[in-house]
């Protein structure tokens, strides 16, 4: 049954992708992209990737869409319908597609427990996580500790994007720009007001749950950061961007980003100072299991802070920019 459902979802995925290419209204394209992400998230869930599904839904379908819409507001909604005339494109793409499909014939069968992917590293992680960390979510264990250095890098990718957007949009807007008419939010629309206000506290609460329960169930810093950021973005949409900035000012957001990134890096440096390698949490406390848990909780907090602050800074950088007339 679930397989039929998966086939159905995948087919929808392809149809949505084609529809996105076809449409010349960018607003429609962005909304379809959001649907595409949700379908993708459902697919991930069917394939047992709960953490990834949660992230794709929060980041792909939520935050990405909002940033796209904010950018469309500052640019234009319509795409000129013609294509570039280079014939080469189709040739390149056909060759690549057949190459990939050719490669799939030797790929291991889906779900084959004897596939090489499931032989080497994965069993080790599944076996050692209960021993070294003593908590159930293996994804969090790899993310926070076994491959914690990747995650640190990822936090700095987000940080780079955040300062990048602030830098690029930090120049003065062109002469004669005006603020957009929706800057005051949807204050005068009753239904979004009521529904939205009901949602915000739950979103924040869910975000905090995901943050602090990441060792036990799907979730962690990224998902939490994205969820809390989306709660505040929702607030900004309802009450106006200025009100959201009053509630959480820009300096606080930048502080969150810097604080989060520094907290994560700081934990690593403390590990060096206490005689371990970078990010070797085991040296933090006498009990190695408790030390691993402490380290992971601390860095997850850093991740959550940095992601939440960065996404909100990016949102405000777009939303607060006056439009070119």
């Amino acid at each position: 049954m679930i397989i039929v459902f998966a086939l159905f979802l995948l087919t929808l995925l392809v149809i949505t992708a084609l529809a996105i290419v076809q449409t010349t209204n960018l607003f429609v394209a962005v909304m379809l992209t959001s649907i595409f992400s949700l379908l993708m998230a459902s697919n991930f869930f069917i394939l047992d990737a709960a953490d990834v599904a949660l992230t794709e839904a929060a980041v792909g379908a939520g935050i990405t869409t909002v940033i796209f819409l904010a950018a469309l507001m500052l640019t234009t909604e319509h795409e000129k319908p013609h294509l570039s005339r280079r014939k080469l494109n189709t040739v390149v793409i056909t060759i690549l597609a057949s190459l990939i499909i050719y490669a799939t014939f030797d790929k291991p069968r889906l779900g084959d427990p004897d596939a090489p992917v499931h032989q080497h590293l994965a069993p080790w992680y599944l076996e050692k996580t209960p021993e070294y960390m003593d908590f159930p979510n293996v994804v969090t264990a790899i993310l926070g500790s076994f491959r914690g250095y990747d995650t640190l890098g990822e936090v700095f990718v987000v940080f780079a994007a955040c300062i990048g957007v602030l830098f690029i949009l930090g120049v003065k807007p062109p002469e004669g720009s005006t603020y957009n008419p929706y800057r005051s939010g949807l204050k005068h629309h009753l239904i979004p007001q009521v529904v939205g206000r009901l949602l915000i506290p739950f979103l924040v609460l869910f975000g905090l749950y995901v943050q602090f329960h990441g060792e036990y169930s799907p979730g962690g810093g990224f998902q939490a950061g994205a969820l809390i950021a989306s709660a505040i973005i929702l607030y900004a949409l309802l009450e106006g961007e200025a009100a959201a900035l009053r509630a959480v000012p820009r300096s606080v957001l930048l502080g969150l980003v810097i604080g989060g990134a520094t907290l994560y890096g700081g934990v690593g440096v403390v590990c060096i100072l206490m005689g371990g390698n970078f990010l070797e949490y085991t040296v933090l406390l006498d009990n190695p299991v408790a030390a691993q848990q402490t380290g992971i909780i601390l860095i997850e907090a850093g991740v959550g802070m940095a992601v939440c602050g960065a996404l909100l800074s990016i949102f405000h950088a777009f939303a607060a920019r006056p439009m070119r007339v």
């Binding site: 590293l121 076994f146 970078f278 070797e280 949490y281 085991t282």
Partner: peptide, 8 residues
């Protein structure tokens, strides 16, 4: 990194 031996 993190005191975990490669390839883990």
């Amino acid at each position: 990194m993190g005191g975990w031996a490669a390839p883990y």
